[in-house]
C-alpha cells in the first residue's frame, strides 16, 4: 500500500504541473502584466512610468519564461514563471498584489472556514444518512414518496434563498442570533449556529436523495434477502448489513470533500461575514487581486487531489477485499 501511495503521489506531479501551466497561461499570457497594471491603476490617466513601477514592485516586470540577460541558472529562475508559479509547489504563495503575505493570510483564515465547514459537513452527513435510511426503511409507502417529493422540492430551491430567508427569519424577525460577524474562542458559537443550520438544510434535498439511491441499490441485493430469510429484523438488516455495504459508494462522495473543508464556502462566508478563506477569495475577486486567486486555485487543486488519495485509502479500511496495488 505504501508503494501505491507513493505512485499516486508521483502521478499527482504532472497534474499539478498541468494546473500550474494552465493558471500561468490564464493570468500572464492571455493578459499581459501590462493589462493587469492598467486595470488596477485605472484606465484613463495612467502613465507608462506608473505601470512600470507597479509591475516592478510586484515582480511582474521580469520576462515570462526565459531571461536572456542573465547568466547560468538565473536565466530560468529570474522569470515570472519561476517566481510566481514554481514557488507554489513548495507552498510559497508570495505576496498579494496589495503587498500582504498570502501564506500568512491563509494560515490565519483557514480556521474560521473550518469552524463552519466541519460542523456543516458532520451534522449534514448524519442528518442525510439518517433521513435516507428512514426513507429506505419505509420504501414504497407514502412516507417514502412524500420524502422523495420534498427532496426534489428542497433541491430546486436556490442556496441563496436558504441563506437570505434564514437571515431574515432567525436574525431579523426573531433576533435569536446576530445576522453576521465572527468572534474568536467560545463567543464564535453564536455566530456559527445560523450558517451551520442553513448549510445543513441546504444540503438535505440532494444529500438524502443520493444516499437513498445508494441504500435502495443495496437493499435489492441477494445478501439482504438472505439476511431477511434468516429472520433478522428489518432494522437489523438495515444497520448491520445495508449500511456497512453502502459504505463504499458513500465514501466515494464523502472523503473527497474533507480536505476541501479548509477552503470554506464562498457564499456562506461572505453572507455571514466570516473571515475565512471563502470570503478571502471573494474579496480577492472583487478587488481583482490576481495573486490571491492564483494561490487559491493551486491550493484548492492540491486539497482536492489529497481528497482523492484519502478516498482510495479509506476504501481499504472499510472493505478488506480491496487492496491497493
Amino acid at each position: 500500500m505504501i508503494a501505491y501511495i507513493i505512485r499516486r503521489i508521483l502521478y499527482v506531479i504532472p497534474i499539478l504541473i498541468g494546473v500550474n501551466v494552465l493558471t500561468f497561461m490564464l493570468f500572464f499570457v492571455v493578459n499581459t502584466p501590462d493589462d493587469m497594471a492598467r486595470m488596477r491603476l485605472g484606465m484613463k490617466h495612467v502613465t507608462p512610468e506608473a505601470i512600470e513601477k507597479w509591475k516592478h514592485e510586484r515582480g511582474y516586470d521580469k520576462p515570462l519564461l526565459f531571461s536572456s540577460k542573465e547568466a547560468g541558472m538565473r536565466k530560468v529562475t529570474n522569470t515570472i514563471f519561476f517566481e510566481k508559479s514554481v514557488g507554489l509547489f513548495v507552498f510559497k504563495f508570495g505576496r498579494s498584489d496589495e503587498g500582504r503575505d498570502i501564506a500568512h493570510d491563509i494560515s490565519q483564515r483557514m480556521w474560521p472556514s473550518l469552524a463552519i465547514a466541519l460542523p456543516v459537513f458532520l451534522v449534514g452527513l448524519l442528518t442525510n444518512i439518517t433521513l435516507s435510511m428512514l426513507l429506505a426503511f419505509f420504501r414504497g409507502t407514502y412516507i417514502d414518496i412524500s420524502g422523495v417529493v420534498t427532496g426534489v422540492v428542497l433541491m430546486s430551491i436556490s442556496s441563496l434563498f436558504y441563506i437570505i430567508s434564514g437571515q431574515y427569519l432567525i436574525s431579523k424577525l426573531w433576533h435569536l442570533v446576530p445576522i453576521s460577524g465572527y468572534d474568536t474562542g467560545v463567543d464564535a458559537a453564536k455566530f456559527l449556529v445560523l450558517p451551520v443550520i442553513i448549510g445543513v438544510i441546504g444540503g438535505i434535498g440532494s444529500g438524502t436523495r443520493w444516499y437513498r439511491a445508494i441504500f435502495l441499490e443495496e437493499i435489492n441485493k441477494d445478501y439482504v434477502r438472505t439476511a431477511r430469510a434468516k429472520g433478522l429484523s428489518e432494522l437489523r438488516v438495515l444497520f448491520r448489513h445495508v449500511l456497512k455495504n453502502a459504505m463504499i459508494p458513500i465514501l466515494t462522495g464523502v472523503v473527497v470533500v474533507i480536505p476541501l473543508l479548509f477552503m470554506g464556502s464562498l457564499i456562506t462566508e461572505s453572507f455571514f461575514g466570516i473571515p475565512g478563506l471563502g470570503s478571502y477569495t471573494i474579496d480577492a475577486i472583487q478587488k481583482q487581486d490576481f495573486a490571491i486567486v492564483r494561490a487559491m486555485v493551486f491550493l484548492g487543486t492540491v486539497l482536492y487531489i489529497i481528497g482523492l488519495i484519502l478516498t482510495d485509502i479509506s476504501y481499504t479500511l472499510v472493505d478488506p477485499r480491496i487492496r491497493l496495488e
Binding site: 497534474i15 494546473v19 494552465l22 493558471t23 490564464l26 493570468f27 492571455v30 493578459n31 476541501l260 477552503m263 464562498l266 477569495t281 475577486i285 481583482q288 490576481f290 486567486v293 492564483r294 487559491m296 486555485v297 484548492g300 487543486t301 482536492y304 487531489i305
Partner: peptide, 14 residues
C-alpha cells in the same frame, strides 16, 4: 482537479 468555482472565477476575471 481545479475546484470549479475557482476556475470559473479565474477565467471570468481574465
Amino acid at each position: 482537479s481545479i475546484p470549479g468555482v475557482l476556475l470559473i472565477t479565474a477565467a471570468i476575471l481574465i
